[in-house]
Design a protein around this nucleic acid. Structure first.
Lengths: 182, 182
DNA sequence: TAATTATATATGCCAACACATCTATGTACT
DNA sequence: AGTACATAGATGTGTTGGCATATATAATTA
Protein backbone atom coordinates (compact mmCIF):
# COMPACT_ATOMS: atom_id res chain seq x y z
CA UNK A 1 0.00 0.00 0.00
CA UNK A 2 2.71 2.47 0.99
CA UNK A 3 5.04 1.52 -1.83
CA UNK A 4 2.83 3.61 -4.09
CA UNK A 5 3.52 6.67 -1.97
CA UNK A 6 7.14 5.74 -1.41
CA UNK A 7 7.61 5.92 -5.17
CA UNK A 8 5.63 9.15 -5.45
CA UNK A 9 7.74 10.59 -2.64
CA UNK A 10 10.94 9.72 -4.44
CA UNK A 11 9.69 11.20 -7.70
CA UNK A 12 8.59 14.32 -5.84
CA UNK A 13 11.80 14.87 -3.92
CA UNK A 14 14.44 13.50 -6.30
CA UNK A 15 12.82 14.36 -9.63
CA UNK A 16 11.80 12.30 -12.70
CA UNK A 17 13.53 8.97 -13.06
CA UNK A 18 13.19 5.36 -14.15
CA UNK A 19 11.95 2.34 -12.20
CA UNK A 20 15.48 1.12 -11.95
CA UNK A 21 16.61 4.45 -10.55
CA UNK A 22 13.84 4.24 -7.96
CA UNK A 23 15.06 0.81 -6.94
CA UNK A 24 18.57 2.21 -6.47
CA UNK A 25 17.22 5.18 -4.54
CA UNK A 26 15.26 2.81 -2.31
CA UNK A 27 18.36 0.76 -1.58
CA UNK A 28 20.42 3.79 -0.65
CA UNK A 29 17.68 5.69 1.13
CA UNK A 30 14.60 4.37 2.88
CA UNK A 31 15.61 0.70 2.75
CA UNK A 32 15.88 0.50 6.54
CA UNK A 33 12.34 1.90 6.81
CA UNK A 34 10.63 0.33 3.80
CA UNK A 35 11.81 -2.30 1.30
CA UNK A 36 10.81 -2.75 -2.30
CA UNK A 37 11.79 -5.28 -4.93
CA UNK A 38 12.15 -4.39 -8.57
CA UNK A 39 9.19 -6.29 -10.07
CA UNK A 40 6.95 -4.74 -7.45
CA UNK A 41 8.23 -1.26 -8.33
CA UNK A 42 7.46 -1.79 -12.02
CA UNK A 43 3.96 -3.07 -11.31
CA UNK A 44 3.28 -0.21 -8.93
CA UNK A 45 4.50 2.29 -11.52
CA UNK A 46 1.96 0.78 -13.93
CA UNK A 47 -0.76 1.32 -11.34
CA UNK A 48 0.37 4.87 -10.71
CA UNK A 49 0.27 5.53 -14.42
CA UNK A 50 -3.27 4.17 -14.71
CA UNK A 51 -4.28 6.36 -11.77
CA UNK A 52 -2.68 9.29 -13.61
CA UNK A 53 -0.42 10.00 -10.66
CA UNK A 54 2.62 9.74 -12.93
CA UNK A 55 3.34 10.16 -16.63
CA UNK A 56 5.85 8.10 -18.59
CA UNK A 57 8.25 9.15 -21.27
CA UNK A 58 10.66 6.95 -23.18
CA UNK A 59 14.28 8.03 -22.83
CA UNK A 60 15.54 8.43 -26.44
CA UNK A 61 19.18 8.67 -25.37
CA UNK A 62 19.01 5.22 -23.81
CA UNK A 63 19.25 1.96 -25.75
CA UNK A 64 17.69 -0.16 -23.00
CA UNK A 65 14.04 0.88 -23.29
CA UNK A 66 14.54 3.15 -20.33
CA UNK A 67 11.34 4.91 -19.28
CA UNK A 68 11.33 8.05 -17.21
CA UNK A 69 8.46 8.65 -14.81
CA UNK A 70 7.33 12.09 -13.67
CA UNK A 71 4.83 12.83 -10.91
CA UNK A 72 1.69 14.72 -11.98
CA UNK A 73 -0.28 17.31 -10.05
CA UNK A 74 -2.84 14.67 -9.10
CA UNK A 75 0.07 12.59 -7.91
CA UNK A 76 1.37 15.46 -5.82
CA UNK A 77 -2.08 15.89 -4.32
CA UNK A 78 -2.44 12.19 -3.48
CA UNK A 79 1.03 12.20 -1.98
CA UNK A 80 0.20 15.19 0.19
CA UNK A 81 -2.96 13.51 1.46
CA UNK A 82 -1.02 10.40 2.36
CA UNK A 83 1.76 12.38 4.02
CA UNK A 84 -0.74 14.16 6.23
CA UNK A 85 -2.72 11.06 7.25
CA UNK A 86 -2.84 10.20 10.92
CA UNK A 87 -0.06 7.94 12.15
CA UNK A 88 -1.38 4.50 13.06
CA UNK A 89 0.64 2.21 15.31
CA UNK A 90 1.03 -1.11 13.55
CA UNK A 91 0.65 -4.13 15.82
CA UNK A 92 3.63 -6.36 16.52
CA UNK A 93 3.81 -9.47 14.32
CA UNK A 94 6.96 -11.36 15.17
CA UNK A 95 7.33 -15.03 14.37
CA UNK A 96 10.18 -15.24 16.87
CA UNK A 97 8.03 -13.94 19.71
CA UNK A 98 5.37 -16.46 18.72
CA UNK A 99 8.04 -19.12 19.20
CA UNK A 100 8.89 -17.68 22.62
CA UNK A 101 5.18 -17.68 23.47
CA UNK A 102 5.18 -21.46 23.02
CA UNK A 103 8.41 -21.75 25.00
CA UNK A 104 7.08 -24.61 27.12
CA UNK A 105 7.03 -26.77 24.00
CA UNK A 106 10.65 -26.04 23.03
CA UNK A 107 13.36 -28.36 24.38
CA UNK A 108 15.27 -26.67 27.25
CA UNK A 109 18.37 -24.76 26.16
CA UNK A 110 17.32 -24.27 22.52
CA UNK A 111 15.56 -20.99 23.16
CA UNK A 112 18.60 -19.46 24.82
CA UNK A 113 20.72 -20.31 21.79
CA UNK A 114 18.15 -18.82 19.44
CA UNK A 115 17.96 -15.57 21.38
CA UNK A 116 21.74 -15.37 21.68
CA UNK A 117 22.10 -15.79 17.90
CA UNK A 118 19.49 -13.14 17.32
CA UNK A 119 21.37 -10.83 19.67
CA UNK A 120 24.37 -11.11 17.38
CA UNK A 121 22.24 -10.22 14.38
CA UNK A 122 20.97 -7.13 16.13
CA UNK A 123 24.53 -6.07 16.94
CA UNK A 124 25.38 -6.27 13.25
CA UNK A 125 22.30 -4.28 12.30
CA UNK A 126 23.31 -1.64 14.83
CA UNK A 127 26.69 -1.35 13.15
CA UNK A 128 25.06 -1.00 9.75
CA UNK A 129 22.92 1.81 11.10
CA UNK A 130 26.01 3.59 12.33
CA UNK A 131 27.46 3.26 8.83
CA UNK A 132 24.32 4.84 7.39
CA UNK A 133 24.85 7.71 9.82
CA UNK A 134 28.05 8.54 8.00
CA UNK A 135 26.33 8.42 4.62
CA UNK A 136 23.64 10.81 5.81
CA UNK A 137 26.28 13.15 7.17
CA UNK A 138 27.86 13.30 3.72
CA UNK A 139 24.52 13.97 2.10
CA UNK A 140 23.86 16.71 4.67
CA UNK A 141 26.45 18.99 3.06
CA UNK A 142 24.27 19.43 -0.02
CA UNK A 143 20.82 18.70 1.40
CA UNK A 144 20.74 19.52 5.12
CA UNK A 145 16.94 19.47 5.27
CA UNK A 146 16.70 15.92 3.87
CA UNK A 147 19.44 14.79 6.21
CA UNK A 148 17.50 16.10 9.20
CA UNK A 149 14.47 13.88 8.49
CA UNK A 150 16.53 10.90 7.40
CA UNK A 151 18.33 11.08 10.71
CA UNK A 152 14.99 11.02 12.51
CA UNK A 153 14.06 7.74 10.81
CA UNK A 154 17.49 6.33 11.48
CA UNK A 155 17.12 7.18 15.16
CA UNK A 156 13.93 5.12 15.21
CA UNK A 157 15.86 2.18 13.82
CA UNK A 158 18.60 2.66 16.37
CA UNK A 159 16.14 2.91 19.27
CA UNK A 160 14.21 -0.18 18.23
CA UNK A 161 17.33 -2.24 17.65
CA UNK A 162 18.70 -1.09 20.98
CA UNK A 163 15.43 -2.14 22.64
CA UNK A 164 15.66 -5.56 21.00
CA UNK A 165 19.25 -5.95 22.19
CA UNK A 166 18.22 -5.18 25.75
CA UNK A 167 15.34 -7.63 25.47
CA UNK A 168 17.72 -10.34 24.26
CA UNK A 169 20.09 -9.72 27.17
CA UNK A 170 17.35 -9.73 29.77
CA UNK A 171 15.71 -12.79 28.24
CA UNK A 172 18.96 -14.74 28.22
CA UNK A 173 19.42 -13.73 31.86
CA UNK A 174 15.94 -14.93 32.80
CA UNK A 175 16.38 -18.18 30.91
CA UNK A 176 19.63 -18.72 32.84
CA UNK A 177 17.80 -18.06 36.10
CA UNK A 178 15.16 -20.61 35.11
CA UNK A 179 17.81 -23.24 34.40
CA UNK A 180 19.55 -22.78 37.75
CA UNK A 181 16.21 -22.86 39.59
CA UNK A 182 15.58 -26.35 38.22
CA UNK B 1 3.34 -18.47 7.18
CA UNK B 2 3.55 -18.55 10.96
CA UNK B 3 -0.19 -18.75 11.50
CA UNK B 4 0.09 -22.42 10.61
CA UNK B 5 2.45 -22.97 13.50
CA UNK B 6 0.59 -20.61 15.78
CA UNK B 7 -2.43 -22.86 15.40
CA UNK B 8 -0.37 -26.02 15.84
CA UNK B 9 1.18 -24.46 18.93
CA UNK B 10 -2.23 -23.75 20.43
CA UNK B 11 -3.49 -27.25 19.65
CA UNK B 12 -0.32 -28.70 21.16
CA UNK B 13 -0.38 -26.67 24.35
CA UNK B 14 -4.10 -26.15 24.97
CA UNK B 15 -5.46 -29.41 23.53
CA UNK B 16 -8.01 -30.25 20.80
CA UNK B 17 -10.44 -27.50 19.96
CA UNK B 18 -12.44 -25.79 17.20
CA UNK B 19 -11.44 -22.99 14.85
CA UNK B 20 -13.59 -20.64 16.82
CA UNK B 21 -11.88 -21.67 20.05
CA UNK B 22 -8.52 -21.00 18.43
CA UNK B 23 -9.67 -17.52 17.46
CA UNK B 24 -10.68 -16.86 21.09
CA UNK B 25 -7.36 -18.26 22.34
CA UNK B 26 -5.50 -16.01 19.91
CA UNK B 27 -7.36 -12.96 21.16
CA UNK B 28 -6.63 -13.70 24.79
CA UNK B 29 -3.14 -14.99 24.28
CA UNK B 30 -0.63 -14.20 21.56
CA UNK B 31 -2.63 -11.34 20.03
CA UNK B 32 0.03 -8.79 20.99
CA UNK B 33 2.63 -10.93 19.22
CA UNK B 34 0.67 -12.34 16.29
CA UNK B 35 -2.83 -11.60 14.99
CA UNK B 36 -5.21 -13.88 13.12
CA UNK B 37 -8.63 -13.32 11.66
CA UNK B 38 -11.26 -16.03 11.68
CA UNK B 39 -11.55 -16.79 7.93
CA UNK B 40 -7.78 -17.13 7.80
CA UNK B 41 -7.84 -19.58 10.71
CA UNK B 42 -10.42 -21.77 8.97
CA UNK B 43 -8.49 -21.77 5.72
CA UNK B 44 -5.25 -22.57 7.51
CA UNK B 45 -6.95 -25.42 9.38
CA UNK B 46 -7.98 -26.83 5.99
CA UNK B 47 -4.37 -26.66 4.85
CA UNK B 48 -3.16 -28.29 8.04
CA UNK B 49 -5.67 -31.08 7.54
CA UNK B 50 -4.51 -31.66 3.96
CA UNK B 51 -0.93 -31.76 5.22
CA UNK B 52 -2.09 -34.32 7.82
CA UNK B 53 -0.78 -32.13 10.61
CA UNK B 54 -4.23 -32.16 12.24
CA UNK B 55 -7.26 -34.45 12.21
CA UNK B 56 -10.86 -33.26 12.38
CA UNK B 57 -13.78 -34.70 14.25
CA UNK B 58 -17.34 -33.40 14.28
CA UNK B 59 -18.59 -32.53 17.74
CA UNK B 60 -21.86 -34.54 18.13
CA UNK B 61 -22.91 -32.65 21.26
CA UNK B 62 -22.96 -29.38 19.33
CA UNK B 63 -25.78 -28.26 17.04
CA UNK B 64 -23.66 -25.70 15.17
CA UNK B 65 -21.47 -27.98 13.02
CA UNK B 66 -18.69 -27.54 15.49
CA UNK B 67 -15.51 -29.33 14.40
CA UNK B 68 -12.76 -30.25 16.80
CA UNK B 69 -9.18 -30.31 15.54
CA UNK B 70 -6.42 -32.43 17.07
CA UNK B 71 -2.72 -32.22 16.27
CA UNK B 72 -1.15 -35.38 14.84
CA UNK B 73 2.34 -36.75 15.38
CA UNK B 74 3.45 -35.32 12.03
CA UNK B 75 2.02 -32.02 13.21
CA UNK B 76 4.00 -32.24 16.45
CA UNK B 77 7.11 -32.96 14.43
CA UNK B 78 6.56 -30.01 12.07
CA UNK B 79 5.85 -27.75 15.04
CA UNK B 80 9.07 -28.82 16.74
CA UNK B 81 11.08 -28.11 13.61
CA UNK B 82 9.55 -24.64 13.35
CA UNK B 83 10.09 -23.92 17.03
CA UNK B 84 13.77 -24.77 16.74
CA UNK B 85 14.41 -22.77 13.57
CA UNK B 86 16.94 -19.96 13.76
CA UNK B 87 15.56 -16.58 14.75
CA UNK B 88 15.65 -14.13 11.84
CA UNK B 89 15.39 -10.40 12.46
CA UNK B 90 12.61 -9.02 10.32
CA UNK B 91 13.39 -5.67 8.70
CA UNK B 92 11.50 -2.56 9.76
CA UNK B 93 8.56 -1.70 7.48
CA UNK B 94 6.81 1.32 8.92
CA UNK B 95 4.60 3.54 6.79
CA UNK B 96 4.91 6.29 9.38
CA UNK B 97 8.69 6.30 9.18
CA UNK B 98 8.40 6.46 5.39
CA UNK B 99 6.33 9.60 5.90
CA UNK B 100 9.00 11.02 8.19
CA UNK B 101 11.61 10.16 5.58
CA UNK B 102 9.84 12.51 3.17
CA UNK B 103 9.51 15.14 5.88
CA UNK B 104 10.74 17.93 3.60
CA UNK B 105 7.58 17.49 1.53
CA UNK B 106 5.19 17.74 4.50
CA UNK B 107 3.90 21.21 5.44
CA UNK B 108 5.69 22.52 8.55
CA UNK B 109 3.95 21.70 11.83
CA UNK B 110 1.95 18.73 10.53
CA UNK B 111 4.61 16.18 11.33
CA UNK B 112 4.83 17.29 14.94
CA UNK B 113 1.09 16.82 15.36
CA UNK B 114 1.23 13.37 13.80
CA UNK B 115 4.06 12.24 16.06
CA UNK B 116 2.34 13.71 19.13
CA UNK B 117 -0.87 11.83 18.30
CA UNK B 118 1.10 8.65 17.82
CA UNK B 119 2.75 9.21 21.17
CA UNK B 120 -0.70 9.13 22.77
CA UNK B 121 -1.48 5.86 21.02
CA UNK B 122 1.70 4.31 22.36
CA UNK B 123 0.82 5.42 25.87
CA UNK B 124 -2.52 3.62 25.56
CA UNK B 125 -0.83 0.50 24.24
CA UNK B 126 1.54 0.61 27.17
CA UNK B 127 -1.42 0.66 29.55
CA UNK B 128 -3.00 -2.29 27.74
CA UNK B 129 0.23 -4.21 28.15
CA UNK B 130 0.19 -3.53 31.87
CA UNK B 131 -3.37 -4.89 31.98
CA UNK B 132 -2.19 -8.07 30.24
CA UNK B 133 0.46 -8.35 32.94
CA UNK B 134 -2.32 -8.83 35.50
CA UNK B 135 -4.01 -11.46 33.32
CA UNK B 136 -0.79 -13.41 33.03
CA UNK B 137 -0.26 -13.20 36.77
CA UNK B 138 -3.67 -14.82 37.27
CA UNK B 139 -2.86 -17.53 34.78
CA UNK B 140 0.46 -18.10 36.54
CA UNK B 141 -1.27 -19.69 39.54
CA UNK B 142 -2.28 -22.72 37.47
CA UNK B 143 0.35 -22.65 34.73
CA UNK B 144 3.53 -20.97 36.02
CA UNK B 145 5.63 -22.30 33.14
CA UNK B 146 3.35 -20.78 30.48
CA UNK B 147 3.26 -17.51 32.39
CA UNK B 148 7.05 -17.34 32.38
CA UNK B 149 7.28 -17.39 28.58
CA UNK B 150 4.25 -15.20 28.06
CA UNK B 151 5.88 -12.63 30.29
CA UNK B 152 8.99 -12.75 28.11
CA UNK B 153 6.96 -11.87 25.02
CA UNK B 154 5.11 -9.17 26.91
CA UNK B 155 8.42 -7.65 27.97
CA UNK B 156 9.38 -7.41 24.31
CA UNK B 157 6.18 -5.49 23.66
CA UNK B 158 6.84 -3.20 26.60
CA UNK B 159 10.44 -2.55 25.55
CA UNK B 160 9.51 -1.78 21.95
CA UNK B 161 6.63 0.49 22.92
CA UNK B 162 8.86 2.25 25.42
CA UNK B 163 11.45 2.75 22.67
CA UNK B 164 8.80 4.21 20.37
CA UNK B 165 7.64 6.57 23.12
CA UNK B 166 11.17 7.82 23.62
CA UNK B 167 11.57 8.28 19.88
CA UNK B 168 8.34 10.30 19.75
CA UNK B 169 9.53 12.55 22.57
CA UNK B 170 12.96 13.12 21.08
CA UNK B 171 11.51 13.67 17.62
CA UNK B 172 9.02 16.26 18.88
CA UNK B 173 11.91 17.96 20.66
CA UNK B 174 14.01 18.03 17.51
CA UNK B 175 11.11 19.31 15.42
CA UNK B 176 10.64 22.09 17.99
CA UNK B 177 14.32 22.95 17.74
CA UNK B 178 14.02 23.11 13.96
CA UNK B 179 11.07 25.50 14.20
CA UNK B 180 12.86 27.89 16.55
CA UNK B 181 15.99 27.82 14.39
CA UNK B 182 13.97 29.14 11.45
C1' DT C 1 -41.91 -11.54 21.77
C1' DA C 2 -38.45 -9.28 19.02
C1' DA C 3 -33.93 -7.86 18.40
C1' DT C 4 -29.36 -8.42 19.28
C1' DT C 5 -25.19 -10.83 20.37
C1' DA C 6 -22.33 -14.99 20.57
C1' DT C 7 -21.18 -19.32 18.57
C1' DA C 8 -19.75 -21.79 14.41
C1' DT C 9 -18.25 -22.55 9.61
C1' DA C 10 -17.60 -21.19 4.91
C1' DT C 11 -16.76 -18.65 0.43
C1' DG C 12 -15.47 -14.85 -2.59
C1' DC C 13 -12.50 -11.30 -3.81
C1' DC C 14 -8.70 -8.30 -3.99
C1' DA C 15 -4.24 -6.11 -2.67
C1' DA C 16 0.39 -6.83 -1.33
C1' DC C 17 4.39 -9.27 -1.59
C1' DA C 18 8.03 -12.65 -2.51
C1' DC C 19 10.38 -15.38 -5.63
C1' DA C 20 11.57 -17.18 -10.05
C1' DT C 21 12.21 -16.41 -14.69
C1' DC C 22 12.84 -14.09 -19.23
C1' DT C 23 14.68 -10.68 -22.50
C1' DA C 24 18.13 -7.39 -23.99
C1' DT C 25 21.94 -4.06 -23.94
C1' DG C 26 26.09 -1.80 -22.33
C1' DT C 27 30.36 -2.04 -19.54
C1' DA C 28 34.20 -3.91 -17.14
C1' DC C 29 37.27 -7.43 -16.30
C1' DT C 30 40.32 -11.41 -17.58
C1' DA D 1 37.25 -12.94 -27.31
C1' DG D 2 34.65 -14.45 -23.51
C1' DT D 3 32.69 -13.92 -19.01
C1' DA D 4 30.53 -11.51 -15.62
C1' DC D 5 28.11 -7.73 -13.94
C1' DA D 6 25.13 -3.63 -14.10
C1' DT D 7 21.33 -1.53 -16.37
C1' DA D 8 16.50 -1.81 -17.92
C1' DG D 9 12.04 -3.74 -18.28
C1' DA D 10 8.36 -7.46 -17.97
C1' DT D 11 5.60 -11.66 -16.70
C1' DG D 12 4.20 -15.71 -14.15
C1' DT D 13 2.93 -17.76 -9.95
C1' DG D 14 1.88 -18.74 -5.31
C1' DT D 15 1.12 -17.17 -0.49
C1' DT D 16 -0.56 -14.31 2.92
C1' DG D 17 -3.63 -11.23 4.55
C1' DG D 18 -7.71 -8.32 5.02
C1' DC D 19 -12.41 -7.38 4.31
C1' DA D 20 -17.05 -8.49 3.08
C1' DT D 21 -20.59 -11.62 3.14
C1' DA D 22 -23.61 -15.76 3.71
C1' DT D 23 -25.60 -19.30 6.65
C1' DA D 24 -27.47 -21.25 10.87
C1' DT D 25 -28.17 -22.01 15.78
C1' DA D 26 -28.14 -20.77 20.71
C1' DA D 27 -28.25 -17.36 24.27
C1' DT D 28 -29.16 -12.97 25.98
C1' DT D 29 -31.38 -8.70 26.38
C1' DA D 30 -34.96 -5.12 25.68
Amino acid sequence: MSLKFGILGILASAGPQSGYDIKTYFEEGPSYVWQADLPQIYRTLDQLEQAKYVVVEADPTNARNRKVYTITEEGQKALQEWLQEDFECSPIREANLLRVFFGTLTPPGILKQQVAAQRNQFTEILQQYHAVKTLIAQHAEQYPKDAFFWTLTLQAGLKLTQAWLEWCDETIQQLDDLETRE
